[in-house]
Nucleic acid binder design. Structure first.
Lengths: 155, 155
DNA sequence: ATACAGTATATGTATATACATATATTAAAA
DNA sequence: TTTTAATATATGTATATACATATACTGTAT
């Protein structure tokens, strides 16, 4: 049975809101689908989506502390501490103590920049195919509403 | 430094695509933000977003196999096998062997229906606040483009 | 200068996620 | 009918995620 053949018939709560339109489920579902697509391409260079994101921020934007990264990525800082481990282990980033010695300053290594450079055309391929399938207008709308959603969830 | 003060200045790849507009990063970021909001409400009834989603499908749509759930949720079936564990351990679902004895049929228990009923108004609160903050039109657009994105990622 | 409050990160624990692989069962082929 | 291919789920392993709590450091008040 294909996914599209599954119908959750009785899915209206009393006031008319549909559970099948749960914002959280919809977002997580789409995030899984898209992550699978990106991960599948990036696998050949040994990176995952999350790792590529972190690397891209560091390579394009320069060294950042864990706190800065976690705010930018809307990730708990304890999550980020752990997300950095595989990158450090593989020699793609370096973690140093900052001037404020409570902080850790994360910088890409030469190997990290190289890995990012290898991954970039693969990323670009998936990104472009997705934009093309969605259409420019829908894709732009998607990215805009995602940004709004992040802000709306936070205040 | 606030997240909005962080600027990834040099973020255009040669052909003009911006890394900061990575579809995957945007989706994952928004999924984290929204999940945090829903989880924060659902915590008082001991459910997480993922668990609430699964419960809602079973309660509103009836028993489903792991395969059916995994297709509907765009989740790897091995992930679903594991997602069910906490729900089973807490007595909210029952897992039985189907007529096709390779399959497992997942059904909500009475406790599961009760837990879902308790969670529903909490879910509704977060959902409505989000819709209100985004505006009906933006929210509808979001849910539509998310659906499109799932489809686009899959073919 | 010292005590105390606040901040940045780390660790313990639990769930979420997926790939590679193994197992069990069904369906198809010979 | 026996063999073989396909399907559904489970397990091993690794990463992603966040909360509660602990630790280390900074800044402030006295």
């Amino acid at each position: 049975m294909a996914a599209k053949d599954i119908h959750i018939s009785d899915n209206l709560v009393p006031n008319g809101l549909a559970l099948s339109k749960c914002t959280c489920m919809g977002l997580r579902k789409a995030a899984r689908a898209v992550t699978q697509a990106f991960d599948s391409e990036l696998r050949s260079v040994g990176l995952r989506s999350t790792q590529f994101s972190i690397l891209s921020i560091l390579v394009m934007g320069g060294a950042k502390t864990i706190g800065e990264l976690s705010k930018y990525l809307v990730t708990d800082s304890t999550t980020l501490t752990r997300n950095l481990r595989p990158l450090e282990r593989d020699g793609l980033i370096a973690i140093a103590t900052g001037e404020d010695r409570r902080t850790r300053v994360i910088a890409p290594t030469a190997a990290g920049e190289e890995s990012f450079a290898k991954a970039l055309p693969l990323w670009q391929g998936v990104q472009e195919r997705l934009i093309q399938k969605l259409g420019d207008s829908n894709w732009n709308t998607l990215l805009e509403t995602l940004d709004m959603t992040v802000k709306a969830s936070q205040d």
